[in-house]
């Protein structure tokens, strides 16, 4: 693939979010694998039921294992798992709200409504991430 006067590559929103969607999907799978593997290593196999383990796997918050037979929450409630939760919230919320943006832009006319809906989604995205982080740090 040769080229004559080479235009500079452009980094527009649709391109970046398309790449982000792939990376965030893979990242969420990786976070889930880490959550379930670490949970099993920390004693989930004998100290909690499957439903509790699944809640932990998809969102590794220590409140999810309070009702189990885990004797000590030391391993389950620390800064590492808070970072993991924040990453889950960030990737899931951004992935999801970007999906909503794509659907809206596919189906809404250009002009005012597209700008308005984009702005609304931006606000909802920021709000949901802030609420998520507030809950994670406060729990």
């Amino acid at each position: 693939m040769r080229s004559r006067a080479m235009p500079k590559p452009s980094w527009n929103l649709d391109y970046m979010m398309w790449v982000f969607t792939r990376l965030s999907g893979l990242s969420l799978i990786l976070l889930i694998v880490i959550g379930i593997s670490a949970g099993l290593l920390m004693g989930a196999r004998s100290q909690m039921d499957l439903g509790t383990l699944m809640r932990w796997t998809f969102f590794p918050n220590s409140n999810h294992v309070l009702d189990s037979e885990i004797p000590d929450l030391y391993l389950w409630a620390n800064g590492f798992w808070q970072i993991m939760q924040i990453l889950v919230v960030f990737f899931a919320a951004t992935h999801g709200f970007n999906g909503l943006r794509v659907v809206i832009e596919d189906y809404s006319l250009s002009g005012f409504w597209q700008i308005f809906l984009r702005f609304l989604i931006l606000l909802l995205w920021i709000f949901s991430i802030m609420v998520g982080i507030y809950v994670i740090l406060g729990s």
Partner: peptide, 27 residues
């Protein structure tokens, strides 16, 4: 034409398709 080794305008076509209503509208 993008993948034709004799052609020289691949970069221009890729830029056209990298716009908002280009290739990333494909789901």
């Amino acid at each position: 034409f993008i993948f034709d080794s004799r052609d020289q305008a691949a970069a221009e076509r890729l830029e056209i398709l990298n716009e908002q209503f280009g290739v990333f509208r494909c789901h």
